[in-house]
Design a protein around this nucleic acid. Structure first.
Lengths: 330, 330
DNA sequence: TTGTCTTCTGACAACGTTGTCACTTGTGTC
DNA sequence: GACACAAGTGACAACGTTGTCAGAAGACAA
C-alpha cells in the first residue's frame, strides 16, 4: 500500500480510501490510485484490515459439520456458502466426526482466526464452552441438532413429526406390525425420531412390541444384521421404518438378501440418491438440507447486522416421497 | 495479551513466548502466564500473529472445488482436511460451479486473506492469472484437471487408461458395438475419457461408428434422452460406456425404461453410491478421490516446507469394480 | 477584504502480535 | 576476585491497515 501511494504520489490513507470505496476522493486521484494498484499488482490485505478495523470483521465464518463429505452435511455447506458469497464472506469448514473434542478444537481454531460467526452441527454433549465465544460477540447458530446447556438460535428438522407421518402412512396401508431400526440413541435427532415412532403407534392404538425395535445401529452392516434378525422372528414385521440414511440401505440389503423386498414395506428417514432406481423405489421422509443451511446462514447474518432479538428456533418441514417400497400392503 | 501480561506481572513478550511454546522461559513464569490466560479467557489472535510473523503464515489454505456438495469434490475436500488438521491448518472452501469467473473471484478472496497455499479443481480455461499469486510465494496444486497456460503441480486420474480398461473388458466379453456417452467435450477430463474410448477401439481393430458416440451430455436427463435415442437405432449398441457419474445414471434410467437393463451391458466412469443395490449392479471404473486429495495436500505441504524441486505430476490409478452390468454378454 | 463553510487530503496513532537486541542474573573457570 | 558465558527477561519497533483529527484549498456571502 505504501508503494502504491508512492507511485500515485498520494498518502497511504488516500489509497486506503480508494481501496475501500469510500466517498470523498476526487476522481482524478481515484484513477491514479487504481492505475498504480494495477501496475504494482497490489492486493488488499484483509487480515491487516480486520485487525485495525473498529468492528474487527474478517469477512469469514466458520462451520463445524459432522463430515464435509457426508451428503447431508455437504448440502448444508453449499447452501450456507450460497448465502455467504452474496456478502463477500468466505467459509471455513471442518469435520467433527461425531466427536465432541474435535468440535471444540475446531471452534477454538476458528476463534483464533477471528471468524465473524459460527454455524455448528453439534456432536458435543455440552456447549457451555461456547460462552466465551458468545461473550466475545460471535453469533452462533446450531443446525440439525440442538445445543446442550447453551441457549442459541437453532434450525432443526421436525424429526418426530416426519417419522409419525411415515408410520401413519404404513398404518393406513393396513400394517400393524411395524419394525423400527434406529441410529445411536445418544444422538438427539435419533432419539427424536424414535419418539415419533412410539407416539404414533400409541395414537394409532397399536401395542408396542419391543422385539420390533432395534436402536444404536451405526452403519450399514449393523443395520443389515439387525433387520435380518428381526425378519427371522416367528412373528416378523410386515413393514420397517428405518430412522437414518445408512440404516435404510442396510435394511434394504437385508430385504433383498431374504427375497422379501417386494413383500415387506420399507420407509426410510432421509432421502437417498438413486432411491428411485431401485426395485422397488424406496419411499422416504426427505429432509431439506438446503433450506436448513439457507435459513441458518440468514439468521447468522441478521445477527451480524445487529439483530439482538431473543433466540430463534426454526423448524424445517420434511416431505414424504412415495416410490413403492412404502406402499407394499401387508 | 497486554492484560494477561499485567495479571501475570511479566512483559507481553514473555506472554508471546509462552503462547507460542518457545523455549527459554522459566517454568514458574510459564505457570503464571498460563494461569492468567485462563483466568482472563485469553484467545491468541492468529490474524495479528500472521501479520507480524516473518513468514506471514496464516495456517489456512484455500481450496476451489467444482461444488462442495458434489460427492467427488467433497471427498477431495475431506481428504485434504485430514492432512491439514495434522498440521493445525484450516481449510477455506468455495464452489466454482464450472465457472472460470467464480474460480478467479474465489482465488482473489483467498489471496486477500493471505492463505498459505491453494488447491484448485479448475474450471477456468486460462490460469495465467495465477502468476501473481505464484510470485507472492503461494504454492498452488491442481487436482482432477490440469491447468491451462500455467505450470504447476498436478494430481490427476488416468482417465484415458481407465476408460480403455472398461472398453477392453466389454470387448473381451464379446461386444463389438459399444456406444459412448460423454460429458461436455470442453472439460479436459471428458475429452481424455473420450480419447481412451477411441484409442481402445482402434487397438482392438473395431471400426469407429459415429452414430455410437454422443458427447456434451450435461446432466441425467440429457444422458437419458441420448441413450434412449441411440438404443432405438436399427443397429443398436450391445454395450454402453458412460463417461461420467450422472451420464451413467441417465443411461441406466434409459435401459430400465426400455426394459433392456438385463440385455445391454453398461459400464460407467466414477463410482456411484448404491450402485451395488441396483439390478443389475453397475460395473464402474472407480476413481479414488481420497487418494487424489491426500496426495495433493501432501505435495502442497512439502512446497510449504521449502521443496523447490521442479513441478510434479502425479497420476492416481482407477479401479474396475465388476457388479454385473458390465458382464452382460451380447 | 474577512469570515465561514465545504471538500479534499495527509500525518499520526493504534489494532495485537513477534523479531531484534540489549540488559540482568546466575554459574563456572582461571 | 575477575572474567566469560549462558539463560532468562523486557523495551521497542514493525507488520499493513484504518480511525481520528487537523490542515489546505476553494467557494461563497457579507
Amino acid at each position: 500500500m505504501r508503494e502504491v501511494a508512492a507511485l500515485a504520489k498520494v498518502s497511504i490513507k488516500t489509497v486506503s480510501r480508494v481501496v475501500n470505496g469510500e466517498s470523498g476522493v476526487s476522481p482524478s486521484l481515484v484513477r491514479r490510485v487504481i492505475a498504480a494498484s494495477e501496475r504494482l499488482n497490489y492486493r488488499h490485505n484483509l487480515t491487516a484490515s480486520s485487525l485495525r478495523r473498529s468492528d474487527g470483521r474478517s469477512a469469514t465464518i466458520g462451520i463445524v459439520l459432522e463430515d464435509v463429505a457426508n451428503p447431508f452435511s455437504s448440502a448444508l455447506h453449499r447452501s450456507i456458502e450460497d448465502v455467504a458469497v452474496q456478502r463477500g464472506v468466505l467459509v471455513l469448514a471442518g469435520s467433527s466426526d461425531e466427536d465432541g473434542d474435535r468440535e471444540r478444537k475446531l471452534v477454538s481454531a476458528f476463534a483464533s482466526r477471528r471468524v465473524d460467526g459460527l454455524i455448528i452441527q453439534p456432536s458435543s454433549q455440552d456447549h457451555s464452552y461456547l460462552l466465551s465465544e458468545r461473550r466475545a460477540g460471535t453469533p452462533i447458530v446450531f443446525v440439525d441438532r440442538p445445543p446442550a446447556f447453551f441457549d442459541a438460535d437453532t434450525v432443526l428438522t421436525d424429526n418426530a413429526a416426519g417419522v409419525r407421518r411415515g408410520v401413519r402412512h404404513l398404518v393406513q396401508n393396513g400394517h400393524r406390525r411395524i419394525g423400527y431400526l434406529g441410529d445411536l440413541h445418544t444422538i438427539v435427532t435419533a432419539a427424536e425420531r424414535h419418539r415419533g415412532y412410539v407416539e404414533e403407534l400409541a395414537d394409532q392404538r397399536i401395542e408396542a412390541d419391543e422385539r420390533l425395535v432395534r436402536l444404536d445401529l451405526r452403519g450399514i452392516e449393523r443395520a443389515e444384521a439387525a433387520a435380518t434378525e428381526m425378519l427371522g422372528h416367528s412373528q416378523p414385521p410386515t413393514a420397517l421404518f428405518a430412522g437414518q440414511n445408512l440404516v435404510t440401505i442396510g435394511a434394504f440389503r437385508a430385504l433383498r438378501r431374504l427375497g422379501l423386498h417386494q413383500r415387506v414395506a420399507l420407509i426410510g428417514f432421509d432421502d437417498i440418491l438413486l432411491a428411485d432406481l431401485l426395485e422397488p423405489g424406496i419411499t422416504v421422509i426427505a429432509q431439506d438440507p438446503a433450506a436448513i443451511g439457507r435459513t441458518a446462514a440468514q439468521v447468522l447474518f441478521r445477527r451480524l447486522d445487529g439483530d439482538e432479538s431473543p433466540t430463534q428456533h426454526h423448524i424445517v418441514l420434511t416431505r414424504m416421497i412415495t416410490r413403492g417400497s412404502g406402499e407394499i400392503l401387508p
